[in-house]
């Protein structure tokens, strides 16, 4: 017996945004439920600091509410727009961080739980990654983050960053090389040992 087709079709993002612009506050809740986890994760991966990532996520979503009345259906995708806004907000924060070390970014203190040390190690690596991203030119940092932290394909990154696919390839290649170079000196500290 064939399964009944799923009749519940999700409301498209831009329809929700337009509904919100027309006074439907519940549409904002739907959009936040749909996008906040992804927006927060993107910010957290780039910044390795939960408080800062939450600020960025809040800022990005509130910008979405503000742009709602001017949103043109079909012209842009909400997801693409949010990727771009979060990437920009994160590189803004990373730029301000340059020269300072985010020593308070390790969120969990060591304790006696199994896995606590590994957790600390992971946090230290993510903070090191964020510190290294902060040292890259902003466009390189954004391209590398979208490619390797978000796992997006180059054409999608090209759309988000409003550049050609070839430019994305160039930015990600140069950015990754630069990151590897910056982090090479911290291998032992981060728990990586050459065989």
């Amino acid at each position: 017996m064939k399964a009944a087709p799923d009749l519940i079709v999700p409301v498209p993002d831009d329809a929700l945004l337009i509904a919100f612009a027309n006074g439907d506050a519940a549409a904002a809740r739907d959009l936040a439920t749909r996008y906040l986890p992804r927006v927060l994760a993107q910010a957290m991966r780039m910044l390795a600091d939960l408080a800062e990532a939450e600020d960025v996520a809040q800022d990005a979503m509130i910008r979405l509410w503000k742009i709602a009345p001017d949103w043109r259906q079909g012209e842009a995708q909400v997801s693409t727009w949010l990727y771009r806004v979060v990437a920009n907000l994160c590189t803004d924060r990373l730029r301000k961080r340059r020269g300072t070390i985010a020593i308070d970014a390790v969120t969990e203190p060591a304790d006696g739980r199994p896995g606590a040390v590994a957790h600390m190690q992971t946090n230290a690596r993510l903070v090191a990654l964020a510190d290294a991203l902060a040292q890259l030119p902003e466009r390189q940092a954004q391209a590398v983050a979208l490619r390797h932290l978000e796992g997006l394909a180059n054409p999608e990154i090209a759309q988000i960053m409003d550049i050609s696919v070839r430019s994305v390839e160039s930015l990600t290649a140069r950015g990754k090389r630069a990151l590897a170079h910056i982090m090479a000196g911290r291998k032992a500290e981060l728990g990586y040992y050459d065989d």
Partner: peptide, 25 residues
């Protein structure tokens, strides 16, 4: 390891984001 980071948005964050939601209309 970074891609595996998927923090759950706290109820407080959701409330902050929706607190000022008075829709434009």
């Amino acid at each position: 390891q970074a891609r595996a980071v998927t923090p759950d948005p706290s109820a407080d964050l959701m409330a902050r984001i929706l607190a000022d939601v008075v829709s434009p209309a």
